[in-house]
C-alpha cells in the first residue's frame, strides 16, 4: 500500500472518507494498552466510569464525545498526568506490556518517557527550537553535541518540520507559527523514542492548513507508534483513526472500528452524536 499518496488524499478531502481502510475489518492488531474497569474520580465526582478498552499497537485510536465526557481525563490517566491534580484518584487497571501502570510502585518518570503526550495548546519552552528538543535529551544524559544534533534533526524530520525551520534552530521557539510550535512539541516528544503517543486535541487551536499538516503527520507516525488521540472534530476522527471510542458522561458508549462507528453504530446515542444531534 502506498502510504504517502494515501495520506495526501486523506488530508485534501474534507468529507469523511469512510472507505480508506478496505481491510480494516480483517486486521487483528496486537494490543498495547488495556484498561480494565477503569474509573477515575476528582474528589467525589466520577469522571470516567468503568472503562474497558483495548488499545491496539501501531493504530490510531480516536476518543470522541461532547465536552466534559471524560475523554481527556481518560487520556491523561494513561501517562499518569492526572497525578498532578491532587484530588484525582482511580480504580481499576491499565495494563501495558504486562504491567499495571496505575499501580503505586510505577516510576512515573520512566512511564512518561515511554508514553509521550502532546497537549491541546502548543506549549514549547521559552527556549530555542534546538533546546526545546535537547532539553529532555540532556536530562537523560545525552550531552555530546554531535549526538544531540543528530537526534534533533531526526526528530524534526519525523515531525515534518525540518525543511521549514532548519535555518532557525537557534531562534526562540515562540517565534514559530502555532502549527509549527505544535509540530515542534510532537518532535520533542518523538525524540524520547516513546512507544505510545497521546494527543489531546492537538490541532483544535490551529488554523485549517496547520490542522491538515498535523493530521498528515499523525498518519505517518502510525507506522512507528501507537497513537491515542482525543478530538472534538468528528471529521478528524473519521479521517485518521482506525478505532474510535465514543464517550458520554464518563462511560464508553461504544468502541469499535472507526468505519463501523461512523457508518453503522450499534448504539442510538452514538448515532445521535455522530449525526450532530447533540454535543
Amino acid at each position: 500500500m502506498n502510504k504517502g499518496v494515501f495520506d495526501m488524499a486523506a488530508t485534501i478531502t474534507i468529507e469523511p472518507k469512510l472507505h480508506k481502510h478496505p481491510t480494516a475489518m480483517e486486521i487483528k492488531r496486537e494490543t498495547i494498552l488495556q484498561t480494565e474497569d477503569l474509573s477515575i474520580y476528582y474528589g467525589d465526582n466520577q469522571a470516567v466510569k468503568h472503562a474497558n478498552l483495548d488499545i491496539e499497537k501501531n493504530a490510531i485510536t480516536a476518543l470522541i464525545g461532547p465536552s466534559g465526557c471524560g475523554k481527556s481525563t481518560f487520556l491523561r490517566s494513561i501517562n499518569r498526568m492526572n497525578d498532578l491534580i491532587p484530588v484525582s484518584w482511580n480504580e481499576g487497571k491499565i495494563m501495558y506490556e504486562g504491567v499495571d501502570i496505575l499501580s503505586k510502585n510505577i516510576n512515573t518518570i520512566a512511564l512518561r518517557k515511554e508514553i509521550g503526550m502532546v497537549f491541546q495548546k502548543p506549549n514549547p519552552f521559552p527556549k530555542s527550537v534546538y533546546n526545546n528538543i535537547a532539553h529532555a535529551l540532556r536530562f537523560y544524559g545525552i550531552r555530546k553535541k554531535k549526538q544531540l544534533d543528530e537526534i534533533v534533526e531526526e526528530s524534526l524530520r519525523k515531525a515534518a518540520l525540518w525543511d521549514e525551520i532548519k535555518d532557525r534552530l537557534h531562534d526562540s521557539a515562540l517565534s514559530l507559527s502555532g502549527g509549527q510550535q505544535q509540530r515542534l512539541c510532537i518532535a520533542r516528544t518523538l525524540a524520547m523514542e516513546p512507544n505510545v503517543l497521546l494527543l489531546d486535541e492537538p490541532s483544535s487551536a490551529l488554523d485549517p492548513i496547520s490542522n491538515a499538516k498535523i493530521e498528515e503527520l499523525i498518519l505517518q507516525l502510525k507506522e512507528d507508534y501507537s497513537i491515542v488521540i482525543v478530538t472534538h472534530n468528528m471529521q478528524q476522527a473519521s479521517r485518521i483513526s482506525d478505532k474510535t471510542a465514543f464517550f458520554l458522561n464518563g462511560s464508553v458508549i461504544e468502541y469499535g472500528e472507526t468505519e463501523k462507528i461512523f457508518t453503522n453504530p450499534d448504539q442510538e446515542k452514538t448515532e445521535d452524536y455522530i449525526s450532530g444531534r447533540f454535543g
Binding site: I109, L111, M117, F125, P126
Partner: peptide, 24 residues
C-alpha cells in the same frame, strides 16, 4: 502548561523546577 510539557517528556519534578520553572 510549561510544567506539564516538561513532566510529560519524562523529566523529574526537580529537574523541571531547575530547568523550566526557575528560568521562567
Amino acid at each position: 502548561e510549561m510544567k506539564e510539557a516538561s513532566l510529560a517528556l519524562g523529566i523529574t519534578h526537580w529537574h523541571t523546577i531547575k530547568t523550566v520553572l526557575i528560568p521562567s
